[in-house]
Design a protein around this nucleic acid. Structure first.
Lengths: 296, 296
DNA sequence: GGTTCATGTTAGTTTTGCTCACATAAAGAC
DNA sequence: GTCTTTATGTGAGCAAAACTAACATGAACC
């Protein structure tokens, strides 16, 4: 006799036990409530006993069910953790980098072939995201994040500052020519970018745009600008390549600092690995070139 | 993303890791080696790495695979143990009895309706087997075993003695009439039964049968006798009902003690449960009736 | 009393896991 | 050295399991 029930049924059961509801468990596991209901029925049939008291539409774990759920949860957790640990174990020739999605798309991606040419032995894994937990749990070799630095438990090095400027698509009509016309243009705003400094620098201290669109994802913002949907106060690193290519244009030469520069971060406990050194040296060089190109 | 691979694949992987071979893992899990091979491929695909080094037809675990297998084994073991514990938790109205298979078939089964009539509230679960581990791990309420008693860690009570005698099918021809004819009859022997005492009691101290068949399973032995395949020195409790019914006959009235009587055993730590008391009282009464019927 | 929400069930569909058949190659026997 | 045995891997087809859709039932809420 098989000492284990169908393992999928255990996973369903544990989710119901933890969340208190077939519907919630279904949502959690991305299946219909009917699938969960079937799994519970299969499991209880296999075990030859009920794991829940049914009171109308309420499901209440029996005491035996509660204890079983704790044991199953522990075991499933162990397997998941072992799986994650296995998948994240360091490979000397892979380098896994967490990056701000927009920075990855517009600044890093076009430059990566240069890294690859200089360091052909590395497999480069980009992981788009904004969080820090993948750094803590060992899934990343290093990350590029925006902020003010001073993150606890991480080593960090300033990579480069960022600025923001007004941009539009080259084909955008009517293209604002004066600050007065800027004030009547269709604006695409990003809630993460404050207009205060730019308005002051432009001599429009008392004016704030009333955006036609707000996008919290910078990739959406930049793409909307590129499509000619409006103008935006965008980060230079995201638009500089398009400006050089001629598909976007600066509306004015006014640039102001963005309050959150880019940082390289890596685990405090990280051994001084070769790949960390290689990538850091390369990207710092690239950042310096970018900044110097901007200032000449 | 699902943090767990297909759990069936983990089970397959763990078996290969433990047994060192796809073929052995397949045997262990009662599937073809092809199923295991597919599961390994699925798992390695999910994980994005190899768990084994393949050298010709050898499979060698990588170091990462070895560590992962240990974690998975622990987790699967926890689930299996939790499942078993859940399934074996005591139910007040179930009584689970471990019984010697032959005794169950020939002695206990015919009497169980009497128990059921007297104690209708119990669900009776018979578990045929000879071992003691199911007693230790809480799967049984009590057991009937043969032996000399004095088992450590168990409470025990002598149930009844056993005797052995020569029997044949009523239709068996030629039926031995004399001890001389016994010596030329087709003999079905059970390795667990010594002829020494019987031969001495029969005045044939220098004779031992050369069996045409030996069966280590008493059910096979008794059935073979019933089918007229030969004569056997069988345990009385197994054949008495058939003798009374006329399908088997005693070849002689010579009966000698069997060296291993029947015992009731139950866990030392067992609380004095009602069902234990009920069943013990009943079966001791039945055993006494059987023995008294034999002696009158 | 009507509506909403949760669980359970049946029937049909989709996916997964399995077997079968075969391929390949290494190890063992002669 | 050749033949046989044994192990692993793969593709195709089938069966079983898991899933969804639709509906039923009943409790809770308005």
């Amino acid at each position: 006799m098989n000492p284990l029930p169908p393992l999928g049924a255990l996973r369903a059961f544990e989710a119901v036990a933890r969340l208190g509801s077939v519907v919630k468990a279904a949502e959690s596991l991305h299946v219909t409530h009917s699938a969960i209901s079937h799994q519970l029925r299969t499991l209880e049939g296999f075990l030859g006993l009920s794991l829940f008291l049914r009171e109308g539409k309420k499901l209440l774990l029996t005491e035996e069910g509660r204890i079983y759920a704790l044991r199953v949860r522990g075991a499933l957790g162990d397997m998941a953790e072992a799986t994650q640990r296995l998948q994240s174990c360091p490979k000397p020739h892979d380098i896994t980098i967490g990056v701000v999605p927009s920075f990855a798309l517009h600044w890093l991606l076009p430059r990566l072939p240069d890294f690859k040419a200089k360091y052909p032995q590395y497999t480069v894994n980009l992981r788009a995201g904004l969080g820090f937990e993948d750094m803590s749990n060992g899934l990343l070799d290093l990350a590029i994040r925006m902020g003010t630095g001073n993150w606890e438990g991480l080593q960090q090095q300033h990579l480069m500052d960022e600025t923001v400027l007004l941009v539009a698509a080259a084909h955008f009509m009517p293209r604002p020519q004066t600050l007065a016309e800027v004030q009547t243009a269709v604006v695409i705003a990003n809630p993460a970018i404050q207009w205060t400094s730019w308005c002051q620098a432009a001599g429009l201290a008392d004016w704030r745009p009333k955006p036609a669109y707000t996008y919290n994802d910078s990739n959406l913002e930049v793409e909307a600008v590129r499509l000619g949907h409006g103008i935006a106060l965008s980060r230079l690193s995201l638009v500089s390549a398009a400006i050089e290519a001629g598909s976007l244009v600066k509306i004015t030469e006014i640039e102001v600092p963005y309050q959150y520069p880019y940082w390289l971060i890596w685990p405090e406990k990280s051994s001084a690995s070769r790949k960390l050194a290689d990538f850091s040296a390369w990207i710092i060089g690239q950042a310096n070139d970018f900044v110097n190109g901007r200032n000449s």
